[in-house]
Structure formats: structure tokens, C-alpha cells
Design a protein around this nucleic acid. Structure first.
Length: 194
DNA sequence: AGTGAGATGGCCT
DNA sequence: GGCCATCTCACTA
């Protein structure tokens, strides 16, 4: 079942947690479909989160996507060469989002993990592998027609499997660097770091 | 195992 | 001009 827009209206931390185990799909311009099970996310909680682009209610050309209502994709360029995929959460004017940090390749789920399959164990890498760029910024995730959507295939995640930890790569954010807003599946081979 | 540097360009003050 | 929600490779040991 595709996740409807209401899913993304929930509290950002909840969305980040509940996305674990869901399947991300992306259909590119050549109709090639990529997919992967989400195993790692991070919540960025808006104007009071020093690590968020929207901190201090900074609405700019780049961040305006975050101000849309929940369910839109927010894609931005980082370090001049990598794209990062986020899902906007909450309501219009409440610029919060969830960063998708790592996927488990679905076709490899029952095979022995190997190094050559490590294309999606990081936010920059998964976008590079799928071909997701800022052209996908603003897409509506609740519509399959947009080419970017999320499905629940019934995969069960028990609370015991979920690890909460500080977010990655935001040392500049002071105390917020310690906030436990990163979620990942315990013991997953495919998370960006152990 | 852990550390460090370079690539590379848009964003923001 | 400085910084960055990253990744890879090249060191050290």
C-alpha cells in the first residue's frame, strides 16, 4: 500500500521512526524503477532545530520546499556534488523534514550482503545510485504518478529493532548535535555506519 | 582502527 | 568568503 499524505502530517520524529521498514520507489525518466527498504532516517524538527536548514524560520529559495505541507520531497545539493533526499512533514508553514539516510536493496534481502551492493548506505550515495537530484525537489510522495513514493509491504518492525542515536554530520549545531533524532534498524548491514 | 584531506558548487551573511 | 544533513582514498599503526 502506498503511504497517503496524512502519514507525513504526523510528528516528525514519529514519521522518521515509522518510515523504517517501508519501501522507497523511484521511477526515472527512462521508466526504470529503483527501490529499497528504508533502514535509517533522521528527523529535522524545524525552526527551533539548529541543525535544520529552516532553523530560525529561514525561508529562502532553497528551503521553501520545507514550508510546503507534509508529503513533498525536499532534495538539496550538499558539498557541491551530492544530493540528499528528505520527506517534508507536518503542515504548511511548519518546515520540518526527515532525511533518508540508508536503504536495504530489496532484491538482495535474502542474499548474502556483499561489498559491491553497498550503493545505498548513505544519503548521498543512495541519491547518486537512484539518480535522484534537485529535479525531484517538490514531488508529491503520496502520488505514484510523481515517480517517487513510499509503500508499506507489511514488513513488521518491532520497537526492539529500532535504535535512536544522535544525528550525523552536524557538529556545528551545538547541543542539537546530541539530540537523538537518528533512527535505524539494529544490526542492519545496510545502515550508513555501525 | 582512526585520522585527514580533497573534490566541488550552491547557499547565506 | 566561509561553510556545508558527504564520500573516497590515502595515509598511519
Amino acid at each position: 500500500m502506498i503511504l497517503g499524505q496524512e502519514f507525513y502530517f504526523q510528528k516528525t520524529e514519529k514519521v522518521a521512526k515509522e518510515l523504517l521498514g517501508k519501501i522507497l520507489y523511484f521511477k526515472n525518466d527512462s521508466d526504470k524503477v529503483f527501490s529499497g527498504r528504508i533502514v535509517e532516517t533522521e528527523a529535522y524538527t524545524g525552526i527551533e532545530d539548529p541543525a535544520a536548514h529552516s532553523f530560525g524560520d529561514r525561508k529562502t529559495e532553497r528551503t521553501k520546499t520545507m514550508y510546503l505541507e507534509g508529503g513533498h520531497a525536499y532534495v538539496y545539493l550538499i558539498y557541491g556534488m551530492y544530493n540528499c533526499l528528505n520527506f517534508v512533514t507536518r503542515y504548511e508553514g511548519h518546515p520540518e523534514a526527515v532525511l533518508i539516510r540508508a536503504l536495504e536493496p530489496v532484491h538482495h534481502s535474502s542474499e548474502k550482503p556483499s561489498k559491491k551492493d553497498l550503493h545505498t548506505n548513505g544519503p548521498g550515495k543512495l541519491c547518486r545510485y537512484f539518480g535522484i537530484t534537485r529535479k525531484q525537489d517538490g514531488l508529491k510522495l503520496w502520488k505514484k504518478r510523481s515517480g517517487l513514493w513510499v509503500e508499506d509491504d507489511g514488513f513488521q518492525v518491532s520497537p526492539k529493532q529500532i535504535v535512536r542515536a544522535p544525528r550525523i554530520g552536524i557538529d556545528y549545531a551545538g547541543d542539537a548535535a546530541l539530540w537523538p533524532l537518528r533512527f535505524y534498524l539494529k544490526d542492519s548491514f545496510w545502515v550508513s555506519r555501525p
